[in-house]
Amino acid sequence: MSNRMYTLTRPNMINRRTGTDLLKKSLLLVLGVLIICTFLPAVSVLAANQLVVEDDADILTPDEEARLIRDYSAITEYMGAAFVTTDVASAGTSAFAEDYAISHYGNSPAVIFVIDMYDRELYIYSNGTALKTITRADARAITDNVYKSASRGDYYECADRTFSQILGKCRGERLARPVKHITNALIAVLCGILLNYYLTVYSRIPDPEPRTKGEVNVSVTRQMASMPGISLALPIVLSSVKHYKNRSSGGSGGGGGGHSGGGGGHGF
């Protein structure tokens, strides 16, 4: 990169008097560029004010990529945003999304939408304060709403609808969750009946009581009138056994956080 910049400078503008200064400036410039290049992956997206699209799986046309960037760069007013596709094996789509977020955004708030063509899975990952806007449940709901587009092979529509919902959520709109309401209602009715049933049944189980009212004791002659009582001799040891405890019961804790994130996804 530094060579390229050097060639952009015209040779006739170099004079001998300023040659040393220019050399120093050039060295500094090269050093600066090198430093920038070193940290480029970490800061390049942060500096961007538009949606990042990395279509490694090549499932979108350049025109579709451009439309996505045009329509959804507004998300970057709230958090970093990236749309990533991949078709290589990874430790899992969620792990891939998390690695991408950490390597490109660090602790800065960001939302990453991944289409993993290898595992056939959609995943939305958000971190930092972005996790408060796009929660795991939101991520799950959004992928629930769009997975059918991906199943049909219409990846642009899938991404378009995903970022449309993310942008809406950033602007304070509510996500459509028809399935959630219906499913929760059915689960609530079923669990309500079962909970009520078990509480009712168990509250009616009587406490066990002794058949007789007397006690086996010399002084109590209510029912055991001729019971002479119980005399106990010193107990005899029959056996002595050592029971070893589980060695893994001890342990150490520790470690630290520093990064928090989460998301939700869906196969397609």
């Binding site: 055991m224 019971m227 106990l232 056996s239």
Partner: peptide
């Protein structure tokens, strides 16, 4: 844990009535 098993010699001769 070391656990001992005991035989307890209990004399309970008598009648349990009612």
């Amino acid at each position: 844990d070391k656990i001992n098993t005991y035989r307890i010699d209990a004399s309970v001769n008598g009648q349990y009535c009612g």
